[in-house]
Amino acid sequence: MTTYIPSLTLPRFVFEQPAISIALPMAVGAGIGYSTRPDESQKLYRKLKQPPFNPPGWLFGPVWTALYATMGYTAWRAWTTGTTSFDPETVKLAKQGATLYTIQLALNFAWMPLFFGFYRPIEAAVDLVALGGVTSCLTYVWGKVDPVCGWLLAPYLGWLGFATYLCVGCGYLNNWDFSAATKEEKAE
């Protein structure tokens, strides 16, 4: 597990203001999505060999928007519930979760540039595995603060499992090398 580490944790005001807490992951996620050139990412996605059950590319934006909004709301709810508790253990868990939340956000935001920006499927897969582990711990910790928060993070955990399958499957089917697809993409 981890502990509360202020230097690795978003500032308190992010967790204390629901609008900021919800908007932050949505805005940064959208910004990263647009910075990795969505048109080029879609072309690359279509050129890569994909594992079975891969969804259409257009589905990722709406799913991630909903997941980012939910995780932002969960962050606000867990922080508010936990830090206002009279139980010191609940306060400790809320703060510990805030550190885990910040770490998982950083891992989450790193995936798209790794996969679509730098064409590094191995590193992207390792990032997703780490993200799943941290998010599992976060779900457990904030679930102890408020069981609703644990349940709110369950769809995110499920999607991370599916995303890991897609990332590893895509990497494996393309021999962990996107150079052929990127050359094809640049030639167009």
Rank of each mutant, 00 (worst) to 15 (best):
A23L: 12
T102M: 14
S179P: 01
E89Y: 13
T164A: 14
A181W: 02
P11V: 06
F178E: 02
T65C: 11
K95T: 06
F115V: 09
T3V: 15
L48V: 07
W76V: 03
C167Y: 03
A125W: 13
A75T: 06
T90K: 11
R12N: 13
G133P: 03
T84Y: 08
G57K: 00
V91P: 08
A106R: 01
W159V: 07
E16M: 13
S85I: 02
P38S: 02
W79E: 04
T80E: 09
E123A: 15
L114Y: 04
A23N: 10
W151F: 12
I122P: 05
Y165E: 01
G29H: 04
R12P: 00
G61R: 10
V28E: 09
P155N: 00
F178Y: 13
T84K: 13
C167D: 12
F15I: 00
T90V: 14
T164C: 03
L44K: 06
S41G: 12
K144P: 03
G82N: 03
K186I: 06
T99C: 02
N175V: 08
A130V: 14
L67E: 10
F13S: 14
R77T: 09
F15W: 03
A30K: 08
L105R: 02
V14D: 00
Y68R: 05
T36C: 12
L107C: 04
Y119C: 13
P51W: 12
I32M: 10
Y101V: 10
W64K: 01
